[in-house]
Design a protein around this nucleic acid. Structure first.
Lengths: 208, 208
DNA sequence: AATTCCAGAGAACAGTTGTTAACTGGATGA
DNA sequence: TCATCCAGTTAACAACTGTTCTCTGGAATT
């Protein structure tokens, strides 16, 4: 199926990835709308004009970063929501999973939080579309749960969005607490768990 | 109490406000970290150097914008949460209030949503501090409610943060739907109401 | 009336930006 | 083997950036 790339294509992809990595690093201290093309090429160690061989603009690069940051996350979300076990057990596991993901991919998380409402329209749209996909997937998993009996589609999607937004809020909190002492990070963990718990309580009494 | 300003101070404040207004307008299509000092002075119609008479940097201007956007909002939040009436009635009124505020101050709302996780640290910190104040105020109002009997302080603050974050999410949704047809805006209204309802249901069964 | 103050103007600085055109040299395919 | 392709280079462009220093003219103070 997958044809082995020639030396040429392989080198091109390698450079492209170097662009993405360099940009992500530079974006820890600024927004995409202020990221300069020359700034990125300088960080990669390549001529400014080389940029155009891979991206039309920095906005284009941003959209590629959205795919890198969120594209591979769908399986994880799907299984997290659907995993069997008691509801308390699932809450703890979900928060731990977010915490772990922030630890291993802080720059990706920062990028998404920053550019979700950022100044570059195509990037906002790309993030919005990915989050909509997450919501649809969460909804599909929720629908499988016996607890979903009697729920209409609109309410399921409403709940799914609530979960997705809460996921992002939690990730952002972990990110802010990243350099903080362990006790602060533990405080965030407990807060996130209780918020998720409250939503879950609301869910289980929704039909009353 | 308030001493009438001299011609000089009055003119200075006028120019300062012109800076804030011009910046806010420019920030509808970009982030603060890419806002240039000359760009702002050009929009105001004043020499670049005049900027330094009012702000040290664009970050400084950003912090001033945070105060303008959120500083005067505290009374509104306070009364909204505390207003008497049935819970369903209060939910409808809260969402309507947010919707109205987004209609009347779209640029302010956009600015806060954009810079909350934006690339300028002092501005992020200023927004964080204001939102923390909101949460404390909401918590204080919640504590007055008879429903809060048996709640500990941590859980009250947890719920207050949930409300504040939800308020921002809703405002952002209204903003995105601003140019959309009326039916889309109505859809957002209903979604926001139901999410608030679900949180309220969770709240009323929290102690079970 | 004379003096001080200070918001804003003007000019100049060294650096930066995105984009263009024409090029080089190694991988690719006939 | 030889012609084609194309990722990356080099050079140059006009336009823009933040910041400094010096100056001005009207308001504020004495």
């Amino acid at each position: 199926m997958s044809h082995t790339l020639g030396i040429r294509q392989a080198q091109k992809q390698k450079t492209r990835q170097a662009f993405l990595d360099a940009a992500l690093a530079l974006l820890e201290e600024q927004s995409l709308s202020s990221l300069g093309l020359r700034e990125v090429t300088r960080a990669v160690g390549v001529a400014p004009t080389a940029f155009y061989r891979h991206f039309r603009s920095t906005a284009d690069l941003g959209v590629a970063l959205v795919d890198e940051a969120l594209g591979s996350l769908h399986p994880m979300v799907r299984t997290t929501v659907s995993t069997a076990g008691g509801s308390e057990e699932r809450i703890v596991r979900a928060i731990d999973l977010i915490s772990h993901h922030v630890d291993t991919h802080p720059a990706h998380v920062r990028f998404i939080a920053r550019e979700r409402h950022g100044g570059v329209q195509p990037v906002r749209e790309a993030i919005r579309a990915q989050l909509e996909r997450f919501a649809e997937e969460v909804k599909a998993e929720l629908a499988k749960d016996p607890q979903a009996a009697g729920w209409n589609d609109d309410d399921l999607l409403m709940l799914a969005h609530l979960y997705v937004d809460q996921m992002l809020i939690t990730a952002s909190l972990f990110l802010e607490a990243q350099e903080a002492p362990a006790e602060e990070r533990q405080r965030v963990t407990r807060l996130a768990r209780r918020q998720l718990r409250l939503i879950t309580v609301g869910r289980s009494h929704w039909l009353d």
